[in-house]
């Protein structure tokens, strides 16, 4: 398993695509920080996109910047990143025709799929951690590293903010692993990496759309993205809610389901590519 994991990791890390993706996730928090510093939100502004509340708080301390970056990037970019790493994992090798050679090396199918899943999870989590680390560094440089105190009795110490940041990073990584698992499952079923990547992104947006239909009632609580943003309350309300636990458990169910189907499917699959 270690040999298969190591060779898969080397193979993925040496690809230009991986560098480009990681460069993008490093660059965007820097751009966000510079833009936020140059154009601070005006007092009279209302509304705004996702994370607008967090954006306002970034003016108080740079420790909020990673939360703002996570919020903004987990809406779209990080979804694509994890879908890319997972969707390309098996289908990419299949589309090159390389998968059959790996299997006749021989490497057992369970090892092939296990190593590919592990590497796609690792690269995805590295991307998410990079967003946080780079945004933290840029945020501290631009806005300092003090605690948060905006009056009305709402304050968070530096320690609390860093603790919340650590928890938010883990939660977002776990939440996106559900999307990753779905892309990975589709990746075992097709020889088209683009199809598998699109499937992961499609699942995310479909779930978001369904979640916005309040008439669906309690069904929404079972949607994979329903608790995606529950972590934001830690920063805007200083509140670690039970929704985090519900969200984590819901993702665990989806991850086990999608990975289980992927393993079952791949074990029985005729390799024709």
């Amino acid at each position: 398993m270690i040999a298969a994991f190591r060779t898969e990791l080397v193979k993925q890390v040496l690809r230009l695509r991986t560098f480009v993706v990681l460069a993008i996730v490093v660059l965007i928090p820097v751009i966000m920080t510079i833009a936020n510093k140059a154009n601070p939100p005006g007092g009279g502004e209302r509304g705004g996109g996702p994370g607008e509340g967090l954006r306002r708080l970034t003016q108080e301390t740079g420790l909020i910047m990673p939360a703002f970056a996570l919020r903004l990037m987990s809406v779209f970019l990080l979804v694509i990143v994890v879908a890319l790493f997972a969707g390309d994992a098996v289908a990419g090798d299949a589309s090159w025709g390389n998968l059959r050679y790996l299997l006749v090396r021989p490497v057992k199918r369970a090892r092939v799929i296990g190593s590919k899943l592990a590497v796609s999870v690792l690269l995805s989590w590295v991307a998410i951690v990079l967003v946080v680390v780079v945004a933290l560094a840029a945020g501290v440089i631009a806005f300092g590293s003090s605690g948060l105190n905006v009056g009305f009795g709402f304050s968070q110490s530096r320690g609390e903010l860093l603790g919340h940041l650590g928890l938010a990073t883990v939660y977002v990584a776990w939440a996106l692993t559900g999307v990753l698992a779905f892309s990975f499952m589709v990746s075992t079923m097709t020889d088209s990496p683009a199809g598998a990547i699109s499937a992961g992104v499609g699942l995310y947006f479909l779930s978001q759309i369904l979640d916005s239909i309040t008439a669906l009632g309690s069904i929404r609580y079972g949607l994979p993205t329903h608790y995606f943003d529950s972590w934001v309350d830690m920063f805007t309300r200083n509140h670690v809610g039970s929704d985090l636990a519900r969200g984590a458990l819901l993702q665990l169910g989806y991850i086990l389901l999608f990975c289980g189907i992927a393993a079952w499917w791949f074990r029985r699959k005729d390799i024709l590519s």
């Binding site: 040999a3 298969a4 090159w96 790996l102 006749v104 090396r105 021989p106 490497v107």
Partner: peptide, 27 residues
Amino acid sequence: GALIEQAAFVPQLSGLRNLRLWWEAGG
């Protein structure tokens, strides 16, 4: 030793790197 239809490799890596990774994948 098997060659099935076209020889296939990871296109973005060198020939030698492909051989090495394939071999080492078997432990």
